[in-house]
């Protein structure tokens, strides 16, 4: 099958397909990552600056219209472990943030409460396959407490060289016990070229998302 046909299939899969952007939170010393994501009824923005090979700092904003809160605060991220193999790489990352959450923004203008989140992420990939697991807990006093898990499995329809367009067709499974529909399955398409990474998808429940990340 020609690569263009794979692209068409990936786009079709995306049209059926939520996720947030699964960027590598720690890049390289001096490296930056900016991300914006819109997912059905929530929008997230994040900026991360890597200080050392294993540590990064940043700022995280999130607006959740469905649960009627927003969060703003600084964050830190670390690379706990990396396995560099001849044909593959595995990573364990951790992330944490603390700040202020505002409740009932739409009706009252917001009631500020302390809030925090923490997550751990493990991934393994080679040039053809990609797997990832992520667990994230969010707490905001008297506003919301959530714990979500995500697993991803991706396939590259063709193997691309550095600088070329990289395409991934990804199947994502989300679990959030507090959600009206705890289990969500989403086909996702990822395009990566140069320092820009874009993802789009729609879950089988009909929740759509799109994200854009830029590394610089």
């Amino acid at each position: 099958m020609r690569p263009y046909a794979y692209m068409a299939l990936a786009a079709a899969a995306a049209a059926l397909a939520p996720t947030d952007a699964d960027a590598r939170p720690v890049t390289y010393p001096g490296g930056n990552m900016a991300m914006v994501e819109h997912r059905d009824e929530s929008t997230t923005t994040e900026f991360v600056h890597t200080l050392t090979p294993k540590f990064a700092v940043g700022w995280h904003d999130e607006w959740n219209d469905e649960r009627d809160w927003q969060f703003h605060g600084p964050m830190i991220a670390g690379l706990a472990k990396r396995w560099n193999m001849p044909d593959a790489q595995g990573n364990i990352f951790w992330m944490a943030g603390a700040g202020v959450a505002y409740d009932d923004v739409a009706s009252t203008g917001g009631d500020a409460k302390p809030a925090a989140y923490a997550s751990v992420e493990a991934d393994w990939e080679n040039r053809r396959f990609y797997t990832q697991y992520q667990a994230k807990g969010f707490w905001a006093e008297d506003i919301d407490t959530t714990f979500m898990q995500r697993a991803r499995f991706g396939v590259a329809p063709y193997v691309a060289e550095a600088g070329a367009l990289h395409t991934w067709a990804i199947l994502q499974v989300d679990y959030d016990a507090e959600d009206d529909r705890p289990l969500s399955v989403s086909p996702v398409v990822r395009l990566f070229k140069g320092g820009a990474l874009a993802e789009a998808g729609v879950s089988l429940n009909g929740d759509a998302f799109a994200s854009l990340m830029v590394y610089f």
């Binding site: 890049t27 490296g31 396995w83 193999m85 790489q89 691309a160 990289h166 590394y215």
Partner: peptide
């Protein structure tokens, strides 16, 4: 070792 993606090349 560990060169598996365009992100690696960028870094």
């Amino acid at each position: 070792n560990g060169l598996v993606c365009d992100f690696c090349a960028q870094a």
